[in-house]
Amino acid sequence: MQPADFTKQAPNIVVWALLLTMPFWLSHVGGYTELGSQVVVLGLAALGLNFLLGYTGVLSFGHAAYFGLGAYGAGMTLRYLLPSTGMGIIIGTLIGTIAGAIIGPLIIRLRGVYFAMVTIAFGQVFYFIAFRWSSVTGGDDGLTGWTRLPLHLGFTTIDIQNNPVAFYYFVLVMFAIAVGIMAWLLRSPFGRTLIAIRENERRSRFLGIPIDQHIWISWVISCAVVSLAGALFALLNNFVDPRALYWTQSGDFVIMAVLGGMRSFWGPLIGAAIYVVLRDYLSSMTENWESFIGLFFVLVVLFFPRGVLGIITRKVKS
């Protein structure tokens, strides 16, 4: 391996090494396996959002809707349809993706703050449906009466239901698939085109690139990844409630992406790790943790707008 290749690959190697060994060291640093799964799931959501936010340069503030649809899709499949964790994930992801694909054409022509505002507002429809249609969704109390089930692969059965470590690795496999596809797409001509749109939309348009179409595809991919994360989130908690769809959840994803660094591939995952651990710690320490989270938002915006990885890469380059 050439040294230059190595420095390029080093972050990937470090991230995967940490993720693969997480259940072994997490408890020694005061964590627990479910917290690790949470980091991976929310990190996946933040990475999915960043496909649109960081790489296409489109400001979506409503991704909680698709996260929540994925979660409800998975939960309701297991509750009402059939006892299969795999089908739950597939159906949940499909529902979120289809919803995104339908809403897409309404919003892709809008830009900047207007896009952000419309995406937030659209997210609320699903929140109110989940909230009001309580006979099916459980309303404010959330959807209960189901759990994730062991995986039957034919030759063997993996007990992701009762073994948190097995579930962690199951989540990690899903994460790897989605992240692998995104990384591959970003390296393809399509991904490069998205970056071109981010950098200079007008010039890209003059070059003959169908901008709206590209943004729509990027939006749908992003929604698909986020709804997969939502489905996994429901399975992780064995529970969904309307808060997964609420607009504050969208803000959480955006802050994760910004905190870690929007311009770097792994940034959102690191942001998710910091955010999840911080929230876990704060909510166990003080009743007013919301204020601290809010303060954290303010501080990140004022002092770390480039995010952790943005600062590190800047230091390394200089």
């Binding site: 936010l53 400001l59 503030f61 900047g112 703050v113 952000a116 504050t248 803000g251 955006v254 802050i255 910004v258 007013n288 919301e290 204020s291 989270i293 809010g294 303060l295 954290f296 938002f297 303010v298 990140v300 915006v301 004022l302 707008p305």
Partner: peptide, 23 residues
């Protein structure tokens, strides 16, 4: 700056104000 940042800032402020009034 990118409108993203003012969005996040006021978002955080909303949390602080809501929790502050509760407090």
């Amino acid at each position: 700056r990118d409108p993203l940042y003012s969005l996040l800032l006021t978002f955080g402020l909303a949390f602080i104000i809501e929790d502050g009034t509760r407090f």
